[in-house]
Amino acid sequence: MKTVSEEILLQIENLQFTYDERPVLQGINMRIPKGRVVAVMGGSGCGKTTLLRLIGGQLRPSSGKLRVGEYDVPNLDVDALYAMRRRMGMLFQFGALFTDMSVFDNVAFPMREHTDLPPEIIRDLVLMKLNAVGLRGAAYLMPSELSGGMARRVALARTIALDPMLIMYDEPFAGLDPISLGVVGQLIRHLNDALGATSIIVTHDVYECLKIVDYVYFVSQGVIVAEGTADEIRASDAPFVKQFVNAEVDGPVPFHYPAMDYRQELLNDHV
């Protein structure tokens, strides 16, 4: 793992987000230094993906501060927002490759949209990005011809096409076989270090994630309930962290959805 600076790239203070009068995030605080790979974990529906969308400016927070580098995200106008996004990359859960374009064109897409580079330079850059994820040989396949793991790697190559300062990963390990899982995990770490970028991974996959991240935040019911390095998380006694890391069925995150008393409901006459 490379030594990283303590210059803060992402700073979040008391971030709150409400959707349809339902509080999704209730006072999130984070400080992520440049060069780090940070995981945000938590149960389904706890607001992890919402957090990524807030960082990317796709949603606006109800209140709180959110800075990415020099950008004050909630207060950016459209032009500034797009300028910031040109320096960001986001890997979506199932890759979100453009299905009407080949692998090559998918990776070339951000370069063609945002640069005036000649075709031959774009070709070389695309092949370099694809080589970095081990898929140079698949450059002229269509997304429908790729396996789930390959599609995720192509999407990763597209994400890093413009050498972003911040890379966000939304469930990058979902639905992958063990080999692809390891490959994608290692790629995330190596590419982050090679590019000098900063990465935020939203995931459920504790085992794979703890192998590659520098720091972990646990989110539950819209607040951060635990945080620490991978070793601190493994050794943590916090009930939520223990339940999550050990995949326990019941605990602070209850097995049962809130409902009326079981006995009372069974004895109830109403159909």
Binding site: R85, R86, Q93, P110
Partner: peptide, 13 residues
């Protein structure tokens, strides 16, 4: 399939 969101995140309208 989030292709439109991906495009937005690539600063392409």
């Amino acid at each position: 399939t989030e292709q439109l969101s991906a495009m937005e995140m690539m600063a392409v309208n």
